[in-house]
């Protein structure tokens, strides 16, 4: 135990470790906020599709030899989010088919591009880290850390500002529309926030594991809590807790950070499922 603590104390002296933890907390906070919306609404398909799009965008960025790929990835992902939302609302073109096309297409083309123009010799390493997250969050550059922090703050602020609107639109969209809520505008805003969250989360866990990071804390909280507010608050708390624990374990044990965090999330989900079954839900 003391050895572990000593090792942690040693790591704590390095600023990049503290950055990593700070970014981890911010990103996991953001990613949990829209968890309920993503689990329950038809937005779930957007979330899944977008994580693949983000992979394709990363591939393009690496082909272009960009030193800072986040702005480009962000732009492409937001545009795709808007496109997917449009497709989902248009009943004539099947929304699901469109998402499948875009997401699988992005994966294939992303891999193809990386294969053809790979800037480094280590192709499978590159692909793996884009899909499952970098082996260590400690490799984030200072600009990336700053950008992550700024975006996280924006996402949290937007969510707090639109909290009641998100609830109204997610709970009963036709009632909201009939009584004067601008559902189209808020759907659009939600889609953009989801896109930003996905690009953020990609830095932490890689594109294949994003859904896990977004969905597991919300699912856990929904096992035990019954109001929108308590589920939102507790999924944020759980998400931060899991990410911190995951990052610490990954630093100490040298495991890949993304999958470690998700593993912690999964363990917690089963704990909460058991709790929910025993308690029959807390009426908070």
């Amino acid at each position: 135990m003391t050895a572990v603590l000593e090792k942690l104390a040693l790591y704590w002296q390095y600023p990049f470790v503290r950055y990593a933890l700070a970014v981890g907390v911010l990103i996991s906070l953001c990613s949990s906020l829209l968890g309920v919306t993503l689990v329950l609404k038809r937005f779930s398909f957007i979330g899944d599709g977008l994580s693949h799009v983000a992979f394709g965008a990363m591939a393009i960025a690496s082909v272009l030899h960009l030193t800072n790929d986040m702005p480009l990835v962000l732009l492409i992902t937001i545009l795709s989010a808007i496109l997917l939302l449009r497709a989902g609302q248009n009943a004539k073109i099947k929304g699901d088919a469109m998402v499948a096309m875009i997401s699988v297409g992005a994966l294939a083309i992303g891999y193809l591009l990386m294969n053809l123009f790979s800037p480094s010799g280590n192709l499978s390493g590159d692909v793996c880290s884009t899909l499952f997250g970098s082996t260590s969050i400690l490799t984030l550059t200072k600009t990336e850390v700053r950008l992550c922090a700024a975006l996280s703050v924006l996402v949290v602020a937007a969510f707090v500002f639109f909290y009641h609107k998100v609830f109204a639109v997610t709970f009963d969209e036709s009632f909201a529309a009939a009584t004067g809520v601008k559902t189209k505008v808020y759907n659009f805003i939600i889609a953009v926030i989801i896109a930003v969250i996905i690009v953020l989360a990609m830095n932490l866990v890689g594109s294949l594991l994003i859904s896990a990071l977004v969905i597991f804390p919300a699912l856990s909280a929904m096992r035990a809590f019954k109001s929108f507010r308590s589920v939102t608050v507790y999924s944020a708390v759980l998400s931060i807790f899991c990410s911190l624990l995951g990052i610490l374990i990954s630093i100490l044990a040298g495991t890949p950070v993304g999958s470690t965090i998700v593993a912690v999330d999964i363990v917690l989900f089963f704990v909460f499922s058991a709790l929910g079954r025993i308690l029959g839900g807390v009426h908070a």
Partner: peptide
């Protein structure tokens, strides 16, 4: 969907 009765009723004001 996790929503308390109070939250549902209050959402009537959103418009």
């Amino acid at each position: 969907f996790p929503a308390s009765v109070r939250e549902v009723v209050l959402s009537g004001f959103e418009g």
